[in-house]
């Protein structure tokens, strides 16, 4: 009898416990970055610096969690950065318009939040419908909407900057700068979004269906998965998360312009891929995305804190680390 068959006949072979390096790759990279940071600057792990880095990761992070679902199900969304700018601009205009009638109050801010969420869902639905019902490549659809959202915000701002009414801003400001128990709101929101995202991806039929569609759409269709509905949902989910990210973004500087959110889409996609999600779909993990976002933020922070190299080379350092992080994973998984 051969080894192969005798092993196979065992109804339930013991699960082999082995450290999975490819899964741990991004975590190790993050740990390494933190150690380097500690060595270079004692302030690196200070409460203030950690709060800064985590809070500014939150925008890209919240968006990247949504992007993980879109990419896992075989899609892509290039429009998120422009979408965020467009949502930010519209929120500011809506709030400014409401000030004369409602006064500078919480109500105005609430209307702003509602506008952000609603607009996010709508923008996501537009992308999703064009991809599913319109049967157009996600790349093309979102490349198109990327330009559209960006132009719209430029037009709304008349080429300049939209600024939130000063009094409303004071009310709204704690959304970014405040917190509870010393943890800033953006960090709390990011953590909640990430945890829910992780659970949805791993434990719910929706997450499973995303992976199935990304692996092989036909199999999913033949297995009674509502492919178009799931696809559409991923884009709407992403849109809502862009809305949430924008809600956290607007109180930070209280303004939006055509330069808001530039390249966010690429940062989000990079974070997703660094985290181990497969770009062509079929496999995704949200915790990896979170680690990817943190890696990207810590690199930028480190370069600012330490002034190691000419600032002209910051982009190159980031590029090298992104490629390395992904390469390490590939090598290990190939050796598995």
């Amino acid at each position: 009898m051969t080894l192969a068959t005798s092993a196979a006949r065992q109804p339930s072979p013991p699960a082999r416990r082995r450290i999975n390096f490819s899964a741990l790759g991004p975590l190790l990279a993050l740990a390494l970055l933190i150690v380097i940071g500690m060595l270079l600057n004692p302030n690196f792990l200070s409460y203030g610096n950690l709060t800064n880095v985590l809070a500014r990761s939150a925008f890209i992070g919240i968006i990247a969690v949504g992007m993980t679902f879109v990419i896992t199900s075989g899609g892509l969304d290039l429009s998120v950065g422009s979408m965020a700018a467009f949502i930010a601009g519209t929120m500011i205009i809506v709030m400014n318009l409401l000030v004369p009638s409602l006064g500078a109050s919480w109500l105005v801010v609430l209307c702003g939040l509602g506008t952000g969420l609603l607009l996010g869902a709508l923008a996501g639905a537009v992308n999703g419908l064009l991809v599913t019902v319109g049967r157009i490549e996600a790349f093309i659809v979102t490349l198109g909407t990327m330009g559209i959202f960006r132009s719209l915000v430029t037009w709304l701002a008349d080429g300049g900057t939209l600024s939130l009414d000063f009094t409303v801003r004071e009310i709204y400001r704690p959304f970014y700068y405040g917190g509870i128990f010393g943890v800033a709101w953006p960090i709390i929101v990011f953590a909640i979004v990430a945890i829910i995202g992780e659970i949805v991806m791993r434990k719910t039929p929706f997450g499973r269906h995303c992976a199935a569609i990304g692996s092989n759409e036909q199999v999913a269709r033949y297995s009674a998965v509502r492919v178009d509905l799931v696809r559409l949902s991923t884009y709407v989910l992403l849109g809502v998360l862009v809305g949430i990210a924008t809600i956290m973004y607007v109180p930070r500087l209280g303004s939006a312009s055509s330069s808001t959110g530039v390249l966010w889409e690429l940062e989000a996609i990079a974070a997703v891929i660094i985290g181990g999600t497969v770009l062509k779909g079929g496999f995704g993990r949200v915790w990896g995305t979170v680690v990817g976002v943190l890696i990207l933020s810590f690199i930028g922070n480190l370069l600012n804190l330490a002034a190691l190299v000419s600032p002209y080379l910051n982009g190159a350092i980031q590029g090298v680390i992104i490629i390395l992080a992904v390469m390490l994973q590939r090598e290990r998984s190939a050796a598995k």
Binding site: R208, A211, A212, S215, N216, Q218, V219, A220, R221, Y222, S223, V225, G282, F283
Partner: peptide
Amino acid sequence: RGLILNQEMRPNLTL
């Protein structure tokens, strides 16, 4: 159309 070849048996079985 029947099976997702790059996934394990468990998710395939229950899809």
